[in-house]
Design a binder for these strands. Sequence first.
DNA 1: ATTGTATGATAACATATGTTATATAACAGT
DNA 2: ACTGTTATATAACATATGTTATCATACAAT
Lengths: 187, 187
Amino acid sequence: MPPSKKYTKKEILDIAYDIVEHDGFESLNARKIARKLNASVQPIFFNFPSMEDLKKEVYCQIYQTYQEYMNIKTDQPPYKQSGLSYIKFAKEKPQFFKILFMHPTTNSPENFIVSDSIGDDIIKKGQQLTKLSYEEQKKFHVKVWIFTHGIACLVATNTVKFSEKEIEELLTSTVISMLKGYRGENV
Amino acid sequence: MPPSKKYTKKEILDIAYDIVEHDGFESLNARKIARKLNASVQPIFFNFPSMEDLKKEVYCQIYQTYQEYMNIKTDQPPYKQSGLSYIKFAKEKPQFFKILFMHPTTNSPENFIVSDSIGDDIIKKGQQLTKLSYEEQKKFHVKVWIFTHGIACLVATNTVKFSEKEIEELLTSTVISMLKGYRGENV
DNA sequence: ATTGTATGATAACATATGTTATATAACAGT
DNA sequence: ACTGTTATATAACATATGTTATCATACAAT
C-alpha cells in the first residue's frame, strides 16, 4: 500500500557523517542534511525521532571509525602501532578526534586511556620489551600516552603540520630516550 | 543633557568574560548578558557595534589572563615554571585554554609555540642547563613542549585529574628521563 | 522650568533551527 | 479502478538569538 521509500536511514546517516567529518557537530542540522539529500526535512524526522537521536547514531559511527583505525595491523610492533594509529586518526579525521578526545562533556569511551584500569595485558606486554618493574612500566606507559596524545591534539587542531615520517621519528626517538632515562633513573 | 550611564563597557565585558569562563563562547549571547546585568540588551548594543566585536574584546581579555599566568615568577627555574604555568592555566581556566589552544580556527597567538621561529633565547638559555648542541636542544624543547601540551589538554578537558604535585612530579621526571635518554642516544 | 540629547526599555523584525500539522501522492491489496 | 496506509513536500509553529525601530526618560545647559 505505501509508496516505496526514497530515502533510507543509512543514506541520511551517511550524509550527516560527512557533514560532521568536515565541519563538526555544530554545523549539522536538519535542513542541511535535507539539502544534500535533495529532499525536505520530513524523511529525516520520519527516520529519526529527533535530531538528538540522529546525532547519537552519528557519534556511534564516529567511534566505530576510530576503532577501525586502532585495529589496523601493520609490521610495526603493536604498542608502537597503536600510538601511530591514534595520531593518524587525529590527522585524517581531526573533527572526529576532537569530538572523541578533546571535549570534556562528551563521555568518550577511550581505550587508550590513562587510569587505574589500564589493561594489565598492555602493561605486562610492555614489560616484556622494557624489562621495567610493573609499577615503572605503568608510569612509563602513562608518559608515552601523554606524549602521543599531545602530538595528536596538535595535529588535530592543525597547530603543527608533521608528516607521517616526522611523527614516527618523533614518537620513536622520544619513547626510546624516555625509556633510557627511565632505566638510569631509579632502577 | 543626557542621563548618566547606568551600564559601562567594563561591566558588560566583565559579565561576558565570566560567562565564557564558565561555559565557553557558545553560550555567550546578548540576552544572557542583559539578564545578569539586570538590563535590556540595549546597553550592550549601545556599547558595542555587534556581538562579534564584544566577543573579540573578551578574547583579548582571555589572552591577557593567559599572559598573566605565563608571567608569574616563582623560585622554580623559569623554563620549568613556564611549563607549570601553562598547565596551571589549563587546569584553572579550562574554557580559556580550549579557546586559545584547542581550536584550529582560532588563530591563537601562541608564545610557547613550536615552529622554526622558536625564540633563540629560549633555546640558548636551555643549552646552558642541558649542554646539548643547538639542534638537539631545539628537538629536546619541542618534545618537552609536546609533553607539556599533552598534560594541559588532558587537564583542560578534565580527562584526567592530576594534582599540582602530581603534575610537577610527572613533568620533572619526564623531562629528566628524556634528557638522560637524549644524551646517551646520539651525542 | 524648559529642552535637547544620550541612554535605556519595550517590542518588534530577521534569521536559524527543531519540530509538526496538513495535504499529496504512490502503491499493494482488493 | 478503488482504497487505505505510508513516505514525502509544503508550510507553518516554536524557540533562540542578533539586531533595530520606537518610545520614554533623566539630566545638563539654557
